[in-house]
Structures are given as C-alpha cells and as structure tokens.
Design a protein around this nucleic acid. Structure first.
Lengths: 231, 231
DNA sequence: AAACTCAATATTGGATACATTAAATCCAAA
DNA sequence: TTTGGATTTAATGTATCCAATATTGAGTTT
C-alpha cells in the first residue's frame, strides 16, 4: 500500500466513523472509485481492509454496506476495553514498575492536576488532557509487558464512537465536562496509587471501573444525535 | 473474495500457522503467485489480509515476511483470552442464563463425563472432546450478550499455536493428555456450578484460570520443537 | 392477470499490462 | 582499494481488460 491507497483507506474510514457515510449505506467499488477519482484497485483494497476491521459488511457478491453499529456493540466494546486495560494495569504491577514508567505516570498526574486546578476548562485544555490521557494509558499498556494487549485494544477501538478519542463533548456545557474529566483524572490518581503500592488486583479493578466513564457518554449524550447508529 | 481467493488465503494461513513457511521468511507476491499457480491479484488480497491478522509483517514497499512470534506474544495472547473469556462468563451470569444455554452447557458436561469415565482416551476421543470444548466456550461467549467479545477473541487467536485449536498433544503420552483434558473438564464443571448459582465473579475467576491450561502446553512441550518461533 | 423463463445489464473477481519506487550492482574517481 | 553516484533490475502499486455471476426486467405462456 502506497500513499494513494492509504489515503483512500483513511478517507473512507474517516467518512464512516464520522457518519458521513450513513450506516446501512451501500458502498460499491465503481461508484466509490469514481467518487475518489482513482481506479477500482486501491478502492478494492481499502474496502477489504475496512470490512476486516468490521466497519463494512460484505453483501454476497454485491459489494459492501456500512455496518450498522448497535448500542450493544458499543457498550460491549467498552466492556472489552475495560478488562483489557485492567489486565494491563495488573500485569504492569506484577511485572514490576521501572522508574521511567513511574515518572511518566507521575508527570501525567501532575500536568492534569495543574490543568484542573483552576476549576474550569476550555477546549484547548481538553485537547491537552486528551494527550495526557492517551500517554497515561499507553504507558501502562506498554509497562504490562504483554504484547497482545495493545493490538487487541486497537482492534476493539475502531468501532465508530467506541474509542475514547471519539468522545464528543457538549461545547456548551464545559462545566459538566470539567466534572467528568476531573473525575477521570482522580481515577488516574487512584490507579497510580495502587500501582505504586504493588496492589495489582486493586489497580486492575480501578482501571476496569475507569473505562466505564466512557459509557456515560454513550448512554447520555452522544448517541442521541445519531439515531441511525442505535438499533 | 471468491472461492479461489479464499482458498489461497486459507492455504497461506495454514502454511504459516503450521510452520511450513518459517518465521522470518520473505514472502513476495510474484513468487507466491507462481507457487500457487494464480495471478498476483488474489495473492495480494490474501497477503494483505494475513498482514492485518498479524501473521505477516509488511516490509516497506517490499513485500512481507512471516512474523516471528515470540514466546511473550503467545503467553500474552493466552492472558488476553483469559480475561475475555472471564468477562464472557461474568456477563452471561449478570445477564441471566436461559434454559437453552444451561441445557447446552450441561450436555457438554455430560458428554465429557462419559468420555473420561473409562479412565483413558484415544485420539478419536480427543477430537470429540475438542468439539465439546469449542461448543462450551462458544455457548458462554454467546450467552454473555456482549457482541464485542467474540471478534476480540477471534482476532486474538490467530497467532500460530495460540489458540486452543492448535493444542498439539504428544501422541505417545496419551496418559498425560488424559490427565490434562480431564482436569480442564473438571474446570468446566466448576464454571457451570458458579454460573448456576449466579456467582458472576467466581465464574469469571474460574474461567480466567481455565484459560491457563493452554500455557502449560506452551511452556512445556510444543515449542521446544519450534526453536524458530521462540525468541 | 400472474408466473416463469430468458436475456440484458451491472458488478464483482481475476489476469495482465504499465508506472513508480526502492534496492543492488557496477563503474568511475579519488 | 574504497566510496559514491548512477544505472539497471526487480518488485510493488495502479489501471484496465476479461470472465463469471447475480439481479432485474421484459416478454410470453398458462
């Protein structure tokens, strides 16, 4: 796969994840190729990849359609993430934490503390916290020493809206967002506390619970606007 | 993907999983296509799929090579399976078990009991038990009501030798195999017992432990013969 | 009028030709 | 003799052509 092919893959994936291609919509090779101004070959490759990722579904000998993601699937993906992240935290403790890992985690906590100290957040802060959050989780997953966790999570996350990246927040209710993110950040503190004390089971339990912060979003807000994605 | 393409995909996957294509071996489109007597197109599709499955690794703009699976990855995959199967058992309990599910599980237990009652096993029995085992696990995963578990497990399992399907047993030591399978079957009993009692956490813990029966195989026997697959 | 069959059309799957890119080898110069 | 650059070679990526197949529509027959 070269640039063109990659670009098409990412374009289509983005269009599906963002909802630009509505769930249930039929996606044939030729129209798609024409739409993107390329031949069928790279489109074919991209569609096959997206089908394997679970974003598309093959219609027998008749192309693909955008998979309709049920609420059960989204909630299920969060639950799967929950146990995988929990596993990572526990295994990281069991394996023993290096100073480098502890320092990285601590810096995530410190930066977050600063961010939330002023009692409110703006969009820039949220973007910043998003980075910290990613680093926090990636650090623990890496520290687990279990190379199977990262790919399992990655494949679990590419459902539309299932990943924490896709958390959409109500820009008009930054106050409530502040509460949520601050709570998530406090959970990070508890996880690190457990990890420092070598409490693997506690770290696992806390990390599991932490994954559920996303579900509130799923339940309450985001998907109200996407009736098509809910069964 | 049509028949030809599927066949090639399965052929290549089998060759990789069985070790016929040695880890680290380079796999280019043209030679592979010639070897299999088809054009590059279906080979391309198959290689891309296998790369996405994690069996092959892309060499930048220069084909693929068979991924060298480390022991850490195999053990890690078992641990991932462990928490996912545990999740399935717990969620199945939390959701409530239908009579149909309970009957299926009970029949797996009964058939297994009969198999092991005579105190020894032959190869045919092992094949039979293999089927029962698959049905047992599939039933619980399905009963969990979490549609994200099954694909997560499926993707986790296609590492060579990581899946229970790939358990290779020493045909000259059926006695020891008997011990192992009988033990695994007893674990099935305990899992069902917990599930019947509505003990979700216990069912989860037992199912987690159950997944580790595979690791013994990994550690002790199988991989001694595959030095290339171990780092 | 309804149902079945046949034909036409559209769409995927496979093969091949062409372009692009990376690697390897060879030659020249220092 | 070694190193660097250029050229050649080989392999991927893209486009297009051909074949196989399924669906749809029209026409005919019951």
């Amino acid at each position: 796969m070269s640039q063109a092919s990659h670009k098409i893959l990412n374009t289509l994936r983005q269009m599906i994840v963002s909802g630009a291609l509505a769930p249930g919509m039929k996606l044939a090779e030729i129209p798609t190729a024409e739409m993107l101004g390329v031949s069928r070959t790279p489109v074919r490759s991209a569609l096959a990849t997206l089908a394997q990722e679970g974003l598309l579904e093959r219609i027998h000998q008749r192309g693909f359609h955008v998979r309709r993601i049920s609420k059960e699937e989204l909630v299920g993906a969060v639950e799967v993430r929950s146990v995988l992240e929990g596993l990572a935290a526990r295994q990281a403790v069991e394996r023993g934490l290096s100073n480098a890992v502890l320092e990285t985690l601590q810096s995530c906590l410190d930066v977050g503390d600063q961010l939330f100290a002023k009692g409110h957040i703006n969009e820039e802060d949220i973007a910043h916290y998003h980075d910290i959050n990613k680093r926090f989780h990636a650090t623990i997953i890496s520290a687990s020493g279990n190379p199977a966790i990262e790919p399992a999570l990655a494949r679990n996350e590419h459902l539309p809206f299932a990943s924490p990246n896709a958390i959409r927040f109500d820009k008009n209710a930054l106050d409530r967002e502040f509460q949520r993110f601050a709570f998530a950040h406090q959970q990070h503190h508890t996880v690190v506390d457990a990890m420092r004390r070598g409490q693997g089971a506690r770290a696992e339990a806390l990390m599991r619970e932490h994954a559920y912060v996303t579900i509130r979003y799923v339940d309450v807000d985001d998907f109200a606007n996407f009736p098509d994605t809910i069964k």
